[in-house]
Design a protein around this nucleic acid. Structure first.
Lengths: 350, 350
DNA sequence: AAGAAAAGGTGAAGCGCTATACCTTACAGC
DNA sequence: GCTGTAAGGTATAGCGCTTCACCTTTTCTT
């Protein structure tokens, strides 16, 4: 509860000097004074008042983390978001920042947070392109966008090579002899990420002359069990799987969806990979605990968080830095959820 | 970027009046003035500066969420924490508060956060009892403790009926004819929650004259795959399961651990529930996606978060309120991971 | 030896808001 | 007509910190 003023009085120096000591501007202060002030501050249990500091500096140590969600939605139920936001939080703390977390789609909320708290920077996760004009009108703080595909210059972006991920999945299924494949996304219509994964998937399949038919593109999966969306998906899948002409493999845009699919297939008494193959996307630590050894596209979420925080903090420190774009690579992790149907070449070789 | 002062000038009223309008103290202002000021504020895009407000009021709209973790640990990897902290965040936003999230075990960090930001309240998750004296010395803000067992009066606490949960598990295994049972916790030595679940478990077993031997109490499970802790656990489990005299059932203190166990059993080619039965704890939405239909003890995490935020906000509004303790009930959810070994009575009935 | 520059320091204006004390007018009650 | 009080409003002193302009003394440079 001691204030900077009290420290100054006790140390017989000015507030300016104490401020310099506390903030590490030691070049302005003799080392004896530094020591004396630091000792006193420690003894008196001094903790700087962040509100006062933010007010005086017109900038806080907050970084806004904005993630898409409806009002009242708990997006941390999704393990990808949890892992990613947790990693961001850890990295931010290490750089002396605090995460200001807001799960919303409402631009008014975002605006109020960003301006009200004088945040030092912001991280936008998801497809916020429709708010582009409004985001541009914000006070000019550094922003890093992730999980989105803006088509404008001058923004910082950390992306994942979604096209390549899709392509790897497509090529792999092709190589394993699958010619009738399906695609399953959480929200294909509004997620640019999902769209790119699909495009890459089609490209990968094309190398093996496989087409992805529209009727086997499932656009709206819900990862929670027992919701109406999940039931609707089940019905859709059920009718697709009951015909003789049915897909032999599914590419899902996340592991969470892949596991959901696995469960729904189980309800139809279809086994993975014996009856149907599944390939996922993400390869989160938690997924690996599942009994199903899921073949999936690996992305390094922790590294992504690292890059985001690093990029952002550099742009906060030097506002003249030109905008940057980084893409995190992906790789295929072969486990056991895709069956090898054999092809002419493949079987010949073995 | 407009300030309150500018609104005041534009509306030809004092700053005090604008402040009253913005903060809803309408009883001091005529309704025409209210309308005029609100209109102007909207037009000028006014957003209150939270730092200035916190400074003037000596209290911010932040609620600190303190959760146990080592430095650098991403506790949101654990799905229970993710669900719980996500739910807290949503509930706090609905009441106009902001979560100030800190994952740490270091009291200095906690102290700095709480005092530096002038938080309105705090939520401590985990076994912080060793810091009791220091917590008591904090500026007197309302605090709610969860997932812990303090033995002192005067604190607010929202707990889960861990003893009952353990007991239900014990009784159930007893009823299903299991006489050789094991127990698996994440961190039995330092988690009071785990200790209570174990005590309840023993009590439940005792009703069926079953004992929980010490050699079958596994204290340190790691939910991540492939870590050295996990490998160590595997070795321990392996030697326990290779003898003729081996446990037929396990009670795990969380679903995440139960899934880990399931996986490790799979590595030993032991099937659940055919070769070994497993009962978990938590029943999170995400767990239900797992292919193993896990019998588990259900706790309502969302409701818990609700109770915590409600209790805390009441205590913030009225600091004279006496301390409260609430316990959230649990129930057994029977799925299919426990095998019925049959007992004299049971088999007789069927 | 003189001037420049570096080192070490001070004072006080403000950042944007809240809250307290106080002021004015209207009018109800007797 | 006088008082009491409610309604509607104002002026301003902080909250705790940073920062800028400025001041003094010491230490080079040439």
């Amino acid at each position: 509860m001691a204030t900077l003023k009290e420290i100054a009085q006790a140390a017989h120096v000015s507030m300016a000097t104490v401020s310099n000591v506390i903030n590490g501007n030691h070049h302005k202060v003799s080392s004896e004074t530094v020591e004396r002030v630091e000792k006193l501050a420690r003894e008196m249990g001094y903790v700087p008042n962040q509100a006062a500091r933010s007010l005086a500096q017109r900038e806080s140590r907050f970084i806004a983390i904005i993630s898409q969600a409806g009002k009242g939605d708990n997006i941390l139920t999704n393990p990808y978001n949890a892992q990613y936001i947790g990693a961001l939080t850890v990295d931010l703390h290490e750089k002396g920042y605090y995460p200001l977390i807001r799960f919303t789609n409402d631009f008014k909320d975002i605006d109020t947070d960003l301006r009200g708290w004088n945040v030092a920077g912001a991280i936008f996760n998801g497809s916020y392109s429709r708010y582009l004009k409004q985001i541009r009108s914000l006070p000019s703080i550094p922003i890093v966008f992730t999980d989105c595909y803006f088509r404008v210059p001058g923004i910082n972006h950390v992306g994942v090579d979604d096209d390549m991920g899709g392509q790897l999945a497509g090529e792999y299924l092709g190589k394993m002899g699958h010619r009738k494949v399906a695609f399953l996304a959480a929200d294909l219509d509004s997620s640019e990420v999902d769209q790119h994964r699909r495009a890459g998937f089609e490209a990968g399949l094309k190398e093996y002359d496989v087409e992805l038919p529209d009727r086997w593109t499932f656009r709206h999966a819900d990862i929670r069990p027992g919701t109406e969306y999940t039931e609707a998906l089940y019905q859709e899948l059920y009718s697709a799987m009951q015909t003789e002409d049915r897909p032999t493999a599914f590419f899902c845009t996340s592991d969470a969806i892949a596991l959901q699919l696995h469960r729904l297939m189980g309800r139809m008494s279809l086994r993975v990979p014996e009856d149907v193959s599944i390939i996922g996307f993400d390869d989160l630590p938690f997924t690996q605990q599942y009994s199903l050894p899921l073949t999936t596209i690996h992305q390094d979420v922790d590294q992504k968080a690292h890059l985001v925080v690093d990029m952002l903090s550099r742009h906060i420190q030097d506002k003249t830095l030109p905008s940057e774009r980084t893409v995190v690579g992906v790789s295929l992790v072969e486990r056991g959820s895709v069956r090898n149907l054999g092809t002419k070449e493949e079987t010949a070789r073995e």
